[in-house]
Amino acid sequence: MAKDHIIDNGDGTVTVKLATPIKIDGASTSAVLMREPTVGDQMVAAAQAKNDEAKAEVNLFGNLCNLSPEDMRSLTMRNYGRLQDGFRFFTD
């Protein structure tokens, strides 16, 4: 199913349009760029999370979107769901 908040940039990245803007480094943004994950990204996120699947996913998405842990924790669940959609674009 196509998601209108996921834009394929054709270069191994997608733009994820957020439901509500977030502040990154003091600037408001309504979209984030997510790069395609690698197996190595998955392994690093899992190792950092020490058997906590939710934390591993948050770490992975933060890395793929170049978002800090604080940025990730401040996301609304609706915006986080959109990042999950972006990730599924690469894995479905």
Results as ranks from 00 to 15, higher is better:
32 V>C: 10
59 N>R: 13
63 N>D: 13
49 A>I: 02
49 A>V: 02
29 T>L: 04
65 C>D: 01
63 N>Q: 15
34 M>F: 04
26 G>E: 03
31 A>K: 15
24 I>N: 02
63 N>W: 01
39 V>H: 08
62 G>S: 10
63 N>R: 15
30 S>T: 11
65 C>Q: 09
31 A>W: 03
34 M>E: 06
48 Q>S: 14
25 D>M: 07
34 M>N: 10
42 Q>I: 06
36 E>R: 15
33 L>W: 02
17 K>C: 08
34 M>L: 09
24 I>G: 01
56 A>N: 12
50 K>F: 08
44 V>A: 10
67 L>S: 06
62 G>P: 07
21 P>C: 05
67 L>I: 02
44 V>T: 13
39 V>R: 07
24 I>E: 10
53 E>W: 00
53 E>L: 04
66 N>E: 12
52 D>C: 01
43 M>K: 13
21 P>Q: 01
64 L>E: 10
40 G>T: 02
40 G>F: 02
22 I>D: 09
42 Q>Y: 04
64 L>S: 12
53 E>Y: 04
40 G>R: 05
64 L>Y: 08
58 V>I: 14
60 L>Q: 11
67 L>E: 07
58 V>F: 09
32 V>H: 09
64 L>T: 05
64 L>Q: 09
55 K>H: 08
21 P>K: 06
56 A>I: 03
29 T>Y: 01
23 K>W: 00
59 N>L: 14
16 V>M: 11
20 T>Y: 05
17 K>L: 15
28 S>I: 00
47 A>F: 09
58 V>H: 11
57 E>D: 07
59 N>W: 03
37 P>C: 06
60 L>F: 06
22 I>T: 01
47 A>R: 14
47 A>W: 04
45 A>P: 04
29 T>E: 08
20 T>I: 09
18 L>H: 12
56 A>W: 09
67 L>T: 03
50 K>G: 00
63 N>L: 10
41 D>H: 12
26 G>M: 01
64 L>G: 11
22 I>Q: 03
23 K>S: 09
62 G>L: 06
48 Q>H: 11
43 M>L: 11
16 V>W: 10
34 M>T: 04
38 T>A: 08
46 A>T: 07
33 L>E: 14
20 T>K: 15
37 P>A: 10
41 D>P: 03
47 A>G: 07
57 E>K: 14
58 V>Y: 07
35 R>D: 07
47 A>Q: 15
17 K>V: 14
41 D>G: 05
21 P>I: 01
28 S>A: 12
29 T>V: 14
29 T>H: 05
49 A>N: 12
19 A>H: 14
29 T>C: 09
42 Q>H: 08
65 C>R: 10
34 M>P: 05
46 A>Y: 00
28 S>E: 14
21 P>T: 06
20 T>H: 13
55 K>T: 13
46 A>M: 05
52 D>M: 01
32 V>P: 04
36 E>N: 12
50 K>D: 15
24 I>K: 14
63 N>F: 11
23 K>A: 05
17 K>Q: 14
39 V>I: 10
43 M>I: 06
48 Q>M: 13
60 L>H: 08
51 N>P: 00
50 K>H: 13
44 V>I: 15
30 S>K: 15
16 V>A: 07
42 Q>D: 10
59 N>M: 05
55 K>Q: 12
19 A>I: 03
33 L>R: 15
63 N>A: 15
39 V>D: 06
35 R>F: 02
42 Q>F: 05
65 C>Y: 04
47 A>H: 13
50 K>P: 03
43 M>V: 05
42 Q>P: 00
24 I>P: 01
33 L>Y: 06
